[in-house]
Design a protein around this nucleic acid. Structure first.
Length: 256
DNA sequence: GTTGAGCGTT
């Protein structure tokens, strides 16, 4: 059974869900199966992962058919070292639909009747949130920090370069309005007012006002040394290119 | 290649 959770929720009726925390990011359902299967009838194992990257989020759900077996698994596997990490096994407090469940027991009654029992507790679902609290207290500039290391992490520098040569298809704006699921909904909702100021400031720095300078901080200045010579020769960095003709974009205001 | 509080998909 290697397709746990891939075919969707099988039969969640009268099953007992266990929440497995602290598992490694590479632990799969197959890895957990032998551990939990030893203590009872495992109906299904599901490991939520990031839809964009497909990475494990660090926890899993194991559904047992009987409560006593689930309880035993909690007692026996809680604190067990799996894949080199101590896992935490406990009964799930919420159901697949985020409804509150009792002792990890899932039944149709709970899925329909007690559904509205919750929705009052906006729990966090993403690591962005837990990190957010850390970055929140130190500075409010986390608005962009979060994007840098959470959404793009180290790849942001890539999309920046590529977006120039390729097209807007690689720009973050494209993703935000295209292939974004409900995950980004919540984060986008609260940054709505803030994102506006960011959107108008970010592109304003790179696109308009090109007359400022080509690269003020880079300043090739090849005269000091001669590292660019071999590459500069073929590029013919002749000063004649500095003429106004080089900047047609300045036609709107080249001499204020 | 990294990370580490928490509650889930066809």
């Amino acid at each position: 059974m290697s397709h746990f959770g891939r075919t969707g929720p099988p039969d969640i009726t009268d099953t007992y869900s266990l929440l497995i925390l602290n598992i490694t990011f590479r632990t799969t359902a197959d890895d957990l199966f032998p551990y939990f299967d030893k203590y009872g009838k495992v109906v299904d194992i599901f490991i939520p992962r990031n839809r964009r990257t497909g990475d494990s989020r660090g926890f899993a759900f194991v559904r047992y058919k009987y409560a006593d077996e689930a309880q035993k698994a909690v007692d026996r596997l809680d604190g067990k070292v799996v894949d080199g990490r101590e896992i935490t096994v406990q009964f799930a407090k919420y159901g697949p639909n985020a409804e509150r469940i009792d002792k990890g027991r899932i039944s149709e009654s709970f899925s329909k009747s007690s559904y509205r029992s919750r929705s009052r507790s906006p729990r966090r679902r993403y690591r962005d949130d837990y990190r957010d609290r850390d970055y929140k207290r130190r500075s409010r500039s986390r608005s962009f920090d979060r994007y840098d290391r959470d959404r793009y992490r180290g790849r942001d520098r890539d999309y920046r370069r590529r977006s120039r040569s390729h097209s807007r298809s690689d720009s973050p704006d494209y993703y935000r309005g295209r292939g974004r699921g409900r995950y980004d909904d919540e984060r986008r909702g609260r940054s709505q007012s803030r994102s506006r100021s960011m959107d108008s400031a970010s592109p304003a720095q790179r696109s308009p006002t090109p007359r400022r300078s080509a690269s003020p901080h880079r300043s090739p200045s090849p005269r000091s040394g001669s590292p660019d010579r071999h590459s500069g020769d073929r590029r013919s960095p002749t000063p004649h290119g500095v003429s106004p003709a080089d900047r047609p974009a300045d036609s709107r205001s080249q001499s204020p």
